[in-house]
Write a protein that binds this DNA or RNA. Structure first.
Lengths: 220, 220
DNA sequence: CCACAAAGTTTGACGGTTCAAACTTACAAG
DNA sequence: CTTGTAAGTTTGAACCGTCAAACTTTGTGG
C-alpha cells in the first residue's frame, strides 16, 4: 500500500506527535528523524496529505488522520514483532535488531506477519519492552515511570528501554537492566545529575539522569 | 549493493541462461520473466553491463559475469532459505511461499540470513527440492530426471518440483508427489501424451507429459 | 514595532525505474 | 535477394524520492 518511504514518514510523525504537547509534528523534526532535508519532508508531507494520511496546512503542524494512524500502528506492529522474532527465534543480539527490523518491516506481508505472531505466541511486548499492537491495532498499555523519578532505596522492575541506540542497549544489558530485571536505586546525586542503581546479581552502576530517563520501571 | 530491481534481473538472466543451449539470455525472455517491457529490459541490461554484472553487445545475447553470477546465486540462497523458513518454521503453505520469499529476499541482511541458516540447520534443499547454495555460493548438485522419462513400472523418489506456480504445487501435493515421496509409474500413454503415476498411500493420477517434465525424480 | 532567527515552502535538478512508440537489425522463407 | 517478422534499441516522457538553494512566513527579543 504505502511505499517504504511513506511508511518511514508515518512512523516518524506518529512518534513525534505522540510526545508533543500539541499532538502535532514539525517539519524540522520529521526531517531529522527520517534523515532527510526539510524541503524533502515538506514535499512528502504534502503528498501524504493528498493521500489522506495526514492533515496539515501550510506553516502549521502535521497530524495523522485516522487512516494514517492505523497505517503507522501497522508498521509498528510489524517492526516490533520482527524484533521479537530476531531475538527470540534467531538469537540475534538485542542491541542490533532495531536496524534489521527497520529493513524487514516494509517487506512482510500480513500473511507472514500473522504466522510470525502465532509462532511467537502473540507476544505483547518486544525485546525492548515496547508494547506490540495486536492485529486490530490496539495496544495493551503498560504503566511505569522513568528510573530517574524513583527515590533512593526504591525496588523496581525494568519494564522498558525507550532508546534504541545499540551502544545504549549494550550498556544497559551489560549492567543487567534488561526488561524484566529487578533492581534497587542505590543513590541519586542531584548535584552530579546522576543516579546509581544495582540490578539483582550485578554490580551497581552510576549513570546520568538523562540516561535514566530512557529506562522505564515499575515499583517491584 | 544491487538494487531490488537489479536483483530481479540477475535472477532472470541466471535462470534463463542456465536453460539455454548457448548459455545466453535474450531481451524478450528477460523482459517477460521480470514483467517489464522489452525496452526497459534493454535499458537495464545496459546499466548492468556498466556495473560489470553482465556482458553483452548490441543485438547479442546477455551473459552474467563472474560477479553477476555470484550476485545471482546470493539472491537464490536468500530466496530458498526464506522459503524453507516460511514452510518449516512458520508453517505457511508450500504453494504460496514463493511469492512471499520474492518480497523478503531483497530485505534480509547477511547477518539475518546466516542466523536463519543456523536456525534451520543449514538445509541443502528448499521445500520444492531446489538446492540451496551454501554461504560460499557452492551448490550441492542433485541428480535426477524428469518423471516423464521413466518407464512404466519404475519405482521413483520425487526429488524436486521445478515449477513454482501455486496451482501446480497444490495439484502435486494433493496427489502425494512432494519432494521425498515414493511413487510408481503405472503407465505411459504416448498417444495421449500422458503419464499415470501413483504415490505411496495415494490414488493414482494421470497428467500430461508436459506437466511430468516439472517433476524431477530419482530411481528409488 | 522591527529585525532577525528559526521554521517552512518552492523550485529546478538529478538518479532510478518504468512505459509507449518510433526506429533498427537479424534472419528465415520464399 | 528481397521482404516480412521477430527481436532489439532508442527516445521522450512520467513518477518517486531526494537534494541544494532561493525564497517566505512566523514569532520573539530588544
Amino acid at each position: 500500500m504505502a511505499s517504504e518511504a511513506i511508511e518511514n514518514y508515518l512512523k516518524a510523525i506518529y512518534s513525534l506527535s505522540r510526545e508533543s504537547p500539541t499532538g502535532e509534528a514539525g517539519m524540522k523534526s520529521i526531517a531529522t528523524m527520517t534523515g532527510v532535508t526539510v524541503g524533502t519532508a515538506s514535499t512528502m508531507v504534502k503528498r501524504m496529505a493528498a493521500a489522506k494520511l495526514v492533515k496539515y496546512e501550510r506553516f502549521g503542524g502535521v497530524r495523522l488522520t485516522a487512516k494514517g494512524d492505523r497505517a503507522a500502528i501497522d508498521v509498528q506492529r510489524r517492526h516490533r514483532l520482527i524484533e521479537t522474532f530476531l531475538v527470540q527465534t534467531l538469537k540475534l543480539d538485542w542491541s542490533i535488531v532495531h536496524a534489521e527490523a527497520e529493513r524487514l518491516e516494509h517487506a512482510v506481508s500480513s500473511a507472514v506477519l500473522e504466522a510470525l505472531a502465532i509462532h511467537l505466541h502473540h507476544p505483547c511486548v518486544d525485546p525492548h519492552g515496547d508494547p506490540i499492537p495486536d492485529a486490530d491495532g490496539k495496544t495493551h498499555v503498560g504503566r511505569g515511570a522513568a528510573l530517574a523519578t524513583f527515590a533512593p532505596g526504591s525496588r523496581v522492575r525494568v519494564a522498558r528501554i525507550a532508546d534504541q541506540r545499540p551502544a545504549f542497549l549494550s550498556f544497559v544489558a551489560e549492567h543487567g537492566l534488561r526488561p524484566g530485571a529487578k533492581a534497587v536505586v542505590a543513590a541519586t546525586g542531584s548535584a552530579a545529575q546522576s543516579i546509581t542503581v544495582q540490578a539483582t546479581g550485578c554490580a551497581a552502576v552510576t549513570m546520568a539522569i538523562a540516561a535514566a530517563e530512557s529506562i522505564i520501571c515499575e515499583t517491584a
